[in-house]
């Protein structure tokens, strides 16, 4: 969060730097089965974000001490490729990717029927090839599509989207400039069929009214994005 800046991010017509209005989401494409050797996979582009997710398993959990006798272990790894941002990232696990991996796993564990696969492990590999803003949302959304593609049973798919505040205006789906200079960011993970939440983070400064607006924007956007996900899975299966 860059705090209040002089940069004007919203013009007099309420349009944003990339021409969107406050509730509009960046263009999204979803493709399944992109990694031939994986059990399930998904590539999601969301604005300039380009994220690939592979799912392997269920397989035997190694080493034995990580096994759970009553359910499967969800092994989620979020990673940014070295060339995914404007400054190169040193390869390897860092604190940020470890935290995102954990919250993504926590969100997915709420919907995946893990108790059907005791002692096994399901690997979810999230690789960010190109990052703009909101990669954790793209990663979580793409991961649920990839899990569905792998035939892992789930009670619902998670749709994740973030809203925030820029120049005192609440907007949906922050892009890179808005993320850098904005005043707040509220990523949420929504279950579109019930409207419940499995993932929630927030940083910045929002009044109760702004918070409610951002919340409503997210729920509406999640519903729209869910249609694209369903479409990708239905046509991916038929063609």
């Amino acid at each position: 969060m860059g705090g209040y800046g002089d940069i004007q991010m919203i013009d007099e017509n309420g349009l944003r730097v990339d021409g969107r209005n406050a509730t509009q989401v960046r263009p999204i494409t979803i493709e399944t089965g992109v990694i031939p050797v994986a059990d399930g996979s998904c590539r999601m582009t969301w604005g300039t974000n380009d994220v690939i997710v592979a799912v392997y398993g269920p397989m035997e959990a190694h080493p034995r001490k990580i096994q759970r006798q009553d359910r499967a272990v969800l092994d989620v790894r979020y990673n940014m490729a070295p060339f995914s941002t404007s400054d190169r990232i040193r390869p390897g696990f860092n604190r940020r990717s470890r935290e995102i991996s954990k919250v993504t796993a926590d969100a997915l564990e709420s919907v995946v029927l893990l108790e059907m696969y005791p002692r096994s492990k399901i690997r979810v590999e999230i690789e960010v090839l190109c990052a703009e803003a909101g990669t954790r949302c793209v990663g979580l959304t793409a991961a649920s599509v990839a899990l569905a593609d792998a035939g892992i049973p789930m009670t619902d798919m998670v749709v994740s989207v973030a809203s925030g505040k820029v120049n005192d205006v609440v907007v949906c789906d922050l892009n890179k400039e808005e993320d850098n200079y904005g005043e707040a960011d509220l990523p949420m993970g929504v279950l579109p069929n019930s409207g419940e939440l499995v993932f929630l983070q927030m940083d910045g400064d929002l009044s109760p009214e702004e918070f409610q607006t951002a919340w409503d924007y997210n729920i509406q956007a999640a519903y729209d994005i869910h249609k694209i996900m369903v479409d990708a899975l239905k046509t991916g299966g038929a063609n």
């Binding site: 050797v37 380009d50 490729a81 070295p82 060339f83 995914s84 941002t85 190169r88 190109c130 990052a131």
Partner: peptide, 25 residues
């Protein structure tokens, strides 16, 4: 193929898929 890299390429050989990205420091 990669927006954030200064140079990039993707190679698909059968079912093998790789990316290469160039950055400068």
């Amino acid at each position: 193929v990669l927006e954030r890299a200064e140079g990039s390429a993707k190679v698909t050989m059968g079912d093998t898929i790789v990316y290469a990205g160039v950055k400068f420091q």
